[in-house]
Nucleic acid binder design. Structure first.
Length: 300
DNA sequence: TCACGTCAAGCAGAT
DNA sequence: ATCTGCTTGACGTGA
């Protein structure tokens, strides 16, 4: 079991998600920004290793305008040695990496232009993982997409479009259940036709589950993960104590987390903590997990 | 230095 | 009709 957090490290004084406005685009600006972002990414990974955090989500903003038509610059080639160094570090330290394209990636959209942009976005994320040199245990995660008042047809549209994707995208691409449109059972329907792995999001499942328990959902989802995809991944968040149902928590609720870990003790998985205070929650979780055999067996 | 309007992009649900 | 939230606020202008 590896513990991770998404995109931003609040303890370091750098961000790997620096960007700029489209109207200010220039190759120099692009190179400077990517250089900064890659340097910061390396610092974050080093911080993570020192704190036993071996799981991390790389920000989609690593390469500004990475999937935009304006981008013709060959950043993979230009930053080859930087990516290679990051890749060597990740593999040496036995780390796991994911990425999570944003809300504009809608593979099952009814608008063909949106579909094309979504494929470009998946290609862009794939390029990053390939530049770093990661195998198919690294993952790119999206939700299923829109419902458009007809979930059955929208699921079929997702399946069709997924099947047409290039193999190098499929190598990394996985889906997760969301909080209002596609629940775990919906993603399992898609899996049956595509074999696409599914990430179980505990917080989304809490919001949208149609009566299925966490244990039932995890059991079904974990069965479909294959050796080449690595350990199953869980996305976890506590509920915000004041804002109520389906609001992300500012900090990890340790009581809830301990219950979740106990409840899932039959399984081994990697867990991404989607909590607003980022690495602080990961460090608290690891402190608790230090005596858990699942946590220790994955470390080197 | 800080306030604040805006930023490449989609969709669903609430107001 | 307009606003908000989503995996994540940051950029850039003007005072």
């Amino acid at each position: 079991m590896k513990v991770g957090y998404p995109c931003i490290n609040l303890s370091l004084n750098c961000r790997s998600s620096r960007k700029f406005r489209l109207k200010n685009y220039s190759e120099n600006r692009l190179i400077d920004t990517i250089q900064n972002n890659l340097l910061c990414l390396k610092k974050i990974l080093e911080f993570n290793y020192e704190n036993k955090i071996l799981f991390f989500r790389i920000t989609s903003d690593l390469i500004p305008f990475g999937s935009h038509p304006i981008m013709t610059f060959n950043w993979q080639e230009y930053f080859k040695s930087e990516f290679r160094e990051i890749g060597l570090y990740i593999r040496k330290k036995n780390m796991r990496i994911t990425m999570h394209p944003g809300q504009y990636t809608v593979l099952n959209s009814k608008n063909q232009r949106v579909v094309e942009n979504s494929i470009k976005e998946l290609q862009y994320h794939t390029k990053i993982l390939e530049a770093i040199g990661l195998d198919s245990t690294a993952k790119i995660i999206t939700h299923v997409g829109g419902v458009y008042g007809d979930k059955k047809t929208s699921i079929l549209r997702f399946i069709e479009r997924y099947k047409k994707l290039n193999e190098n995208i499929k190598n990394y691409y996985v889906i997760e259940n969301d909080d209002k449109s596609y629940n775990v059972n919906d993603t399992l329907v898609i899996n049956r036709s595509t074999e696409i792995p599914i990430i179980f999001d505990s917080y989304h499942h809490h919001c949208y589950n149609l009566g299925a328990t966490t244990e039932e959902a995890i059991k079904k989802v974990f069965m479909i993960w294959k050796e080449k995809d690595g350990l199953p991944i869980i996305h976890y968040s506590s509920e915000h104590p004041l804002k109520g149902k389906c609001k992300h928590a500012e900090e990890l609720d340790m009581t809830d987390f301990r219950n979740f870990i106990k409840k899932t003790n039959k399984y081994n998985f990697d867990i991404m903590l989607e909590i607003k205070n980022k690495e602080k929650s990961a460090i608290s979780a690891i402190e608790y997990l230090m005596k858990d055999i699942r946590f220790n067996q994955n470390r080197i």
